[in-house]
Amino acid sequence: MKLTLPTILTLFRIVLIPVLVVTFYLPYRWSNFVAAMIFTICAVTDWADGWIARRYRLTSAFGAFLDPVADKLAVTVALFVVVQSHPTIWLALMSAIIVGREITISALREWMAEVGERRKVRVAAIGKIKTIVQMVAIVCLVYRDDILGLPVFSIGEWLLGVAAALTLWSGLGYLRAAWPAFQADAGEHRNDPDDRRGDRENS
Rank of each mutant, 00 (worst) to 15 (best):
V77F: 11
V19D: 01
E110Y: 11
F24S: 07
M1T: 05
A53W: 03
A53C: 08
A181Q: 07
V136N: 10
A178F: 11
W111K: 12
F65L: 15
D199S: 13
D199I: 15
S60R: 10
W158C: 02
R190W: 13
I103R: 11
A164K: 03
I155H: 05
I97M: 06
A181V: 00
L108R: 06
I17T: 09
S203F: 14
G161A: 02
R176T: 10
Q84T: 01
V133Q: 04
A184R: 11
V82D: 03
C140S: 06
L160W: 07
V15S: 14
A92F: 13
T10G: 12
A96S: 14
G116N: 07
A48M: 14
I98A: 05
I105T: 03
G149Y: 13
A137T: 02
R197N: 13
E157A: 11
L5R: 12
I38F: 04
F62D: 06
F153N: 01
V77N: 07
L93M: 11
A177N: 13
R29K: 06
V83Y: 08
V22C: 06
A165N: 01
L16P: 03
R29T: 10
L160G: 05
T167G: 12
L175F: 09
P6S: 09
L93V: 15
G149Q: 09
K120D: 11
L11Q: 00
R118L: 14
V44F: 10
V152S: 07
Y28S: 13
L166P: 04
N202Q: 11
I8K: 15
L11I: 12
I98E: 10
L91S: 07
Y143N: 02
G127R: 00
T23H: 05
F153D: 03
V82S: 00
I105Y: 11
T4I: 05
N202E: 13
Q134K: 02
L159T: 02
T131F: 12
N191M: 12
A163M: 07
W47S: 05
D195L: 08
V152N: 11
K130H: 04
L150S: 10
L148N: 13
W179K: 09
N191T: 12
V133A: 10
V77H: 11
K120G: 03
P151W: 12
T88M: 01
D194P: 00
L166N: 02
I52H: 03
G116M: 01
V123F: 07
Y25R: 04
V83K: 00
W111H: 06
S170E: 05
L11H: 02
I147L: 15
L108N: 08
M1G: 14
F62V: 01
R197D: 13
C42W: 07
